[in-house]
Design a protein around this nucleic acid. Structure first.
Lengths: 151, 151
DNA sequence: GTCCATAATGAGACTCAGTCTCAATAAGAC
DNA sequence: GTCTTATTGAGACTGAGTCTCATTATGGAC
């Protein structure tokens, strides 16, 4: 079952309608690789003359997240980032506080420990957010250089 | 070295001043247990006639976070939560999406795995945010009840 | 203690990301 | 084709936090 079909089933189940805008947005998102934000997407859509207002973009993104086709990455500040989850499985993110680069990581072991903690505390997990912040390999080198020069 | 002294050292090192407002805010925060948000704090201060404007509260909170005396918990949406870190060590949070309750957890093992992942990816970690969202023990029961009734 | 450069304050304007309103439009069930 | 009702777009609105700027106050030098 492909993404388009998963989305229409999701919509049908929730008595929602498959509009031209929704179809167009999903179609376009499937072309994108990596992370993106809502307003960047709006610019992209406008520049190609694709139909979609800001409101519809935000609304559709929320639907796609709910349908499990897109994942929303809440940032510490500034705009949320999104990524298409079709054909991929869960992972978390390291965010470079210097250049904004997002590096993915996954750890079965951490997931397992998390589940275990929830069990112990009687918590029914519906989701989690695990972000590591710091300097990515590139920026770390730059920072080291800067330090070295200062000495 | 107590909190007040740690704060004045931090201020001195950064050529900042220990004002009446800053002293008052720290003093008041040390009385609070648990989590709080900036605007709740403002209400609290106003109701007691303590000096501190919204701007100063936000500014001082940022200083205290920087000084390591307070920890800021960025929420998925809505106001950030804060907690005083004096005499406590690092932990992460489970947040109940139903009642907003915040339950703390800590796992040496997860921290270790995190460090290991950073090492492997060449990432210099400066901080992290690990939040588990779901239903706390109380709310889970309520949800179960609701489900049971519906059947 | 006095002086004084400059950090800090408060009131309110502003920003930014996202949400809501509402009249017009269009899915899609029948 | 009809009709109910979800959806759309433009722009107003919101909430949390930040910034501005005139006024005040800290704290190092003397």
């Amino acid at each position: 079952m492909d993404a388009a079909e998963r989305f229409s089933r999701y919509l049908a189940t929730n008595r929602l309608r498959l509009t031209r805008e929704r179809r167009g947005i999903l179609e376009e998102l499937l072309r994108i690789k990596g992370h993106f934000d809502a307003d960047g997407l709006l610019v992209h859509f406008r520049s190609r003359g694709l139909p979609a207002s800001r409101a519809t973009l935000y609304r559709t993104l929320a639907r796609l997240v709910d349908a499990g086709l897109v994942h929303k990455i809440e940032m510490e500040k500034g705009q949320a980032q999104y990524e298409v989850m079709v054909g991929r499985h869960h992972h978390d993110h390291m965010i470079c506080v210097r250049c904004g680069r997002i590096v993915e990581f996954e750890s079965r072991e951490i997931e397992r420990l998390q589940t275990e903690i929830c069990r112990r505390k009687g918590f029914a997990m519906t989701g989690h957010m695990h972000q590591i912040r710091g300097h990515c390999s590139d920026c770390r080198d730059k920072t080291d250089d800067a330090k070295a020069r200062r000495v």
